[in-house]
Nucleic acid binder design. Structure first.
Lengths: 118, 118
DNA sequence: TCGGGACATCGACACTTGTCGATGCCCCGA
DNA sequence: TCGGGGCATCGACAAGTGTCGATGTCCCGA
């Protein structure tokens, strides 16, 4: 619809059409990044990952923030829904664990990108 | 927060697994991830990075999406403000280039994290 | 059996964000 | 000098997001 009628032949630069990331790929990865793009959730993942076995109890996470328990629970749900965290209930307590595959996806995406020297 | 659009001073480059991330550190990195956490912006960065010299003209980027020129301009501004893209005007056209440091920050952050289970 | 503690969910609120059409600014070519 | 094209900005709108207090659900110990 809004295709530019090419004001002058051969405008400025390289084609770059049909390049690296497809639209579908971008739509698949963006939610993962969106889940991680929050200071509280970044710290949550960091706290869980820094814990001994890569997991942490919600009761401990609650005490690390100046936020309501409902808010922390919400953030943990967002991370879990995005596939960043695993959830396991043990008796009264709930433990969240980091899913390495999720972080590996992001690392791969930007790792290769950062190494392209131009 | 009227920050200079070129935060060259040591971005993040801190492991996600070592010690827990501080609140200030999380607040500093989250905007970078937030800028990248959008399908359109991910494709924009990908297109720019895939171009020959790691840069691209806005006129070409406009044609790669089914969005208004104003919307693309907005997304480019977000990426530029976050320090992901560099902006350079050449005559009538404007070229955006990827800042490798920005992507390297993200790669470092999640790269070490993905290697955890060892 | 009953009470209480640990999490999740709900409803509500202010704030942010993605998108658009319209308009303004700047640079070049005629 | 003037007209036009490339890009940014403005104002507006709907949709999404972070946060809270209140409430619900489940499980254990007394």
């Amino acid at each position: 619809m809004s295709r530019n009628p090419t004001p002058t032949s051969d405008p400025c630069c390289t084609p770059l059409t049909g390049a690296a990331m497809s639209a579908g790929e971008a739509e698949r990865i963006a939610p993962l990044l969106k889940a991680l793009a929050d200071p509280v959730r970044l710290r949550l993942v960091s706290l869980i990952a820094a814990g001994g076995a890569g997991e942490a109890c919600v009761c401990d996470l609650n005490e690390a923030f100046d936020l309501t328990q409902a808010t922390i629970s919400h953030h943990l749900k967002v991370l879990h829904t995005a596939g960043v965290l695993d959830r396991e209930k043990r008796g009264v307590w709930v433990y969240y664990a980091v899913r390495p595959e999720a972080l590996r996806s992001v690392a791969t995406l930007f790792g290769t990108a950062a190494l392209t020297p131009a």
